[in-house]
Each structure stands twice: as structure tokens, then as C-alpha cells.
């Protein structure tokens, strides 16, 4: 469920569809497992693949601003596995670097990550296994972007309002994370995770992620024209450090027919057209 957490990433994923039944389902309350699975799907798995340009604005407590701009490609595999390709455009010192991830849904299997440094023509394997570290120096964590396995937490439906489900997520292995639990507000109609709040070991709220803008994105599903609801603006606030990161998605596309080959060393060294423009 924490996976929902990531609606930010939403763009990357997609798939769901499902929407005709939404009106009806708003009446009945599904099981908590179904809610978190649908929310996870909305946040990370929509479509067969996806692409977006991403602009991150990191503002520290003193008002200093840093930006990150990159293009991200995602392709779904079997059983929740996914591949990511991130091509950096800004700032200048990371321009043209490529970060590639083969993400595995299985809890006991670490993701494989590569970083390509163009000035040295160097393909590096990243040894980092901790997913709760900052993604490119922002307030988003690696796990916010790539998703957190639903198996990692115990999910409880704690509140149902007219518009939202409130889910409390408690880690099965508390030592593996910096929070004691986090809550997710999920839109009852769309199943989009809209807000996440993280509480530290003393029970104090210290981190908030919010979806600020959700847009329908048209795509083809076979011959069928569909719309994928997508979070195109989100914000994370770190209440302890006073730092905020806004993330905006543009040029969002789904079902481009990305080939598996794009996520190999060949394209890591020379990125595909799809990643560069």
C-alpha cells in the first residue's frame, strides 16, 4: 500500500481503467486489500508503458531553489516488475546522465540500478539497496518514485468519508524504515492516492506528500481510446528540515510501445530518441 504513496509517480504507471464501474462502487466499500491494490495500480502501473518530462523544484528552508529536469520512461513487466529509464536534462552538471532501474516486485530481490556518466563513458552499477534515500537530492525518496511493495506494510482502513478512504499503513519490519506508520487518503471514485502523511517513531507528523493536480491523459489501448487519470503535480514537504519539493509532469504519454531493449546497456550508453525529446 505504501505503494500508493507514490502517486507521484503516477505518471509512470498506468493502467487501470476501470472507470465505468466507479459510480456504483462508490456506494459499497471494498476490502482494504482491494483498495490498496487499485490505488497502487493507479499510482504506478497504468498502461503498458509511459513517458513524461519531469520538472522538480527543491526549495530549502532558506528559500534556496534547485531544479532537476529529466525525462522518464517506464515499462511494465510481469508480476509487478518494472523498468525505468531516467535521462537528465538539468542541472548542467548531471545533464545527459542516465539512471536505469530494473525494479523487482519480490521483497527478497533488490532492484538493479545503473548510472551512466557520459563524460567518462562509464557504466556504473549502483550498489545502493536502501530505497528510502533521497531521489536526486530532492525530498522525494527513491521509493516514492519507484513504488513501495504492498507486502511491506499492514494496511488498515481507518476512515471512510464521502470522498476518500483513509488507510493506515504500518511496516511489517519497522527497523527497515524511518517512519512508524503512514496514512494515505485515496479518492473513492478514482482510487487515486491524493495525500500521504508520514509519522516518525514518536508519532509526530514529519512528512507530507500531496497530489496537487490530476489530469486525464488520452491514450490508445489497442484500438480503443482510453483516458488514464494521472497526477501531474505533486508536492512533498519535509516538516523537519523545512524543505519542499514540487514535481510537475508534462508531455505525459502512455502505451508508446516501448521495447524492452531500451532498458539495456546499449541505450544506457546512447539514449533512445524517446528519452531525449
Amino acid at each position: 500500500m505504501k505503494a500508493l504513496v507514490c502517486w507521484l509517480t503516477v505518471l509512470l504507471t498506468a493502467g487501470l481503467a476501470a472507470l465505468p464501474a466507479a459510480a456504483q462502487e462508490a456506494e459499497a466499500v471494498p476490502s482494504v486489500d482491494e483498495i490498496v491494490q487499485r490505488a497502487n495500480h493507479m499510482a504506478y502501473y497504468q498502461g503498458l508503458d509511459g513517458k513524461s518530462a519531469v520538472l522538480m523544484k527543491i526549495t530549502d528552508k532558506n528559500g534556496n531553489v534547485r531544479t532537476r529536469e529529466f525525462i522518464i520512461l517506464r515499462k511494465n513487466g510481469d508480476g509487478g516488475n518494472q523498468k525505468y529509464f531516467v535521462y537528465f536534462l538539468q542541472p548542467p552538471d548531471v545533464r545527459r546522465m542516465v539512471f536505469m532501474v530494473h525494479k523487482f516486485a519480490a521483497l527478497d530481490k533488490d532492484d538493479d540500478r545503473w548510472l551512466y556518466l557520459p563524460s567518462l563513458d562509464l557504466v556504473n552499477r549502483i550498489a545502493a539497496s536502501d530505497k528510502r534515500t533521497s531521489f536526486v537530492g530532492s525530498d522525494f525518496l527513491y521509493e516514492d518514485v519507484s513504488g513501495r511493495s504492498l507486502e511491506e506494510d499492514v494496511h488498515e482502513l481507518t476512515q471512510v468519508t464521502e470522498e476518500r478512504f483513509l488507510i493506515k499503513n504500518t511496516p511489517k519490519n519497522p527497523a527497515s524504515v524511518e517512519f512508524s506508520y503512514f496514512t494515505v487518503e485515496i479518492d473513492r471514485k478514482t482510487y487515486m492516492p491524493m495525500k500521504m502523511e508520514y509519522f516518525d517513531k514518536s508519532g509526530t507528523l514529519y512528512r507530507v506528500i500531496e497530489a496537487k493536480k490530476v489530469e486525464p491523459i488520452s491514450a490508445k489501448e489497442g484500438d480503443r481510446q482510453v483516458e488514464y487519470l494521472t497526477v501531474t503535480e505533486s508536492v512533498v514537504k519535509d516538516l523537519k528540515t523545512g524543505s519542499t519539493t514540487e514535481m510537475k509532469f508534462s508531455n505525459v504519454q502512455y502505451n508508446l510501445g516501448l521495447n524492452d531493449d531500451l532498458f539495456t546497456e546499449r541505450y544506457l550508453r546512447r539514449p533512445p530518441r524517446e528519452a531525449m525529446r
Binding site: R125, A127, S129, T133, S134
Partner: peptide, 12 residues
């Protein structure tokens, strides 16, 4: 051999 040994801390 390279491994992460702490938060944003890697040893090889």
C-alpha cells in the same frame, strides 16, 4: 565488491 553501508554512504 561495493556495498551501501549507511544512508547515502557507500564503500567499495
Amino acid at each position: 565488491y561495493t556495498q551501501e553501508i549507511g544512508t547515502d554512504f557507500t564503500a567499495g
